[in-house]
């Protein structure tokens, strides 16, 4: 059960020596590459449609010929989409960045306690915390909406920051707990304790400095999930004060939707998370792995 989780964020990159293959035929590799490339095309196909359509002029968009390249490339739809999404785009940064930072800090502290400064019943507590990341959020949404209305927090982004931070605790705790469990030797803590260092000194001086990889993973994870969230956004914000998923849905769901602008909007919406994915891919994957499999 521990195989995946205990693999550090780089678990995927490590390439074991190629598996032994006795018969080096020609048919096998051909099938292998044919399949790999076929699926490559299938996976990229929606992306192709998005890009191509977003550069088409209005009159060129119809059900026929939608697979063709634009006869005339134009960025007018991008301009239109940007105008519609720009305020929400900036707001989403104001949402996702604080969420990523706060959740990570909280997760690091929790993860440390649960892995290396344990108390009786820590496992049960940890399991209870974990359950929080699997619940369908509909099951808390009705009272949640009442609570955030009654505590006088600003609707929109501030509310969403609060909510994402709270419901991000389980996953961030999990990531850090697994991270510390595999990277921080028990002896290190023992040595620190012997020196008479308390919990906070140990955490602050010994643990935090070696936590950067864990932080990168949680920050990326929380940034991405806050950025891509639609459920909390639709319940707790609106087109005036909500994040980009709400704005995109309004743009693409309009009566006579402008397909070129919708597609450009979908690309604009996805850009930040895609950039994160491409630049920090291995850390991104690390978050995915940790986020899925508990040790």
């Amino acid at each position: 059960m521990t195989t995946v989780a205990s693999a550090p964020p780089t678990g995927l990159e490590k390439r074991s020596t190629p598996p032994p293959s006795k018969r080096r035929g020609i048919v096998g590799p051909i099938i292998k590459y044919a399949l790999a490339i076929f699926f490559l095309i299938v996976v990229l196909m929606p992306a192709y449609v998005l890009v191509v359509t977003s550069f088409k002029a209005g009159n060129e968009i119809g059900v026929t010929g939608q697979w063709n390249l634009p006869s005339q490339w134009t960025v007018s739809s991008w301009g239109k989409a940007w105008d519609a999404l720009q305020p929400a785009f900036l707001r989403t940064f104001q949402l996702a960045i604080p969420v990523a930072l706060i959740s990570s800090l909280v997760g690091a502290a929790n993860g440390f306690v649960l892995s290396r400064w344990r108390f009786p019943g820590a496992d049960v507590v940890f399991t209870l915390i974990l359950f929080g990341m699997f619940i369908p959020y509909q099951a808390v949404m009705i009272p949640l909406r009442e609570i955030v209305t009654s505590i006088n927090i600003q609707p929109g982004i501030p509310t969403l920051i609060l909510v994402h931070c709270i419901y991000g605790i389980p996953i961030c705790t999990l990531i850090f707990r697994n991270y510390y469990a595999t990277t921080v030797p028990e002896d290190l803590i023992e040595a620190s304790r012997m020196d008479g260092a308390g919990l906070l000194r140990t955490f602050g001086w010994i643990i935090l400095p070696i936590s950067i990889p864990g932080f990168v993973v949680t920050i990326i994870w929380q940034f991405t999930s806050a950025w891509n969230d639609y459920l909390f956004a639709i319940f707790l914000s609106n087109t005036r004060n909500g994040p980009i998923t709400i704005a995109l849905n309004a743009l693409a769901g309009a009566q006579s939707p402008d397909y070129a602008a919708s597609m450009a909007g979908a690309l604009i919406t996805s850009l930040p998370t895609l950039v994160v994915y491409i630049l920090l891919g291995r850390w991104f994957i690390g978050g995915l792995m940790a986020g899925s499999v508990k040790s």
Partner: peptide, 17 residues
């Protein structure tokens, strides 16, 4: 990288296409 990239996109954005 290509096989995994859809994971970085939100359902709202991919729903459009």
């Amino acid at each position: 990288t290509v096989y995994l990239f859809p994971m970085a996109v939100s359902f709202v954005a991919s729903g459009v296409v």
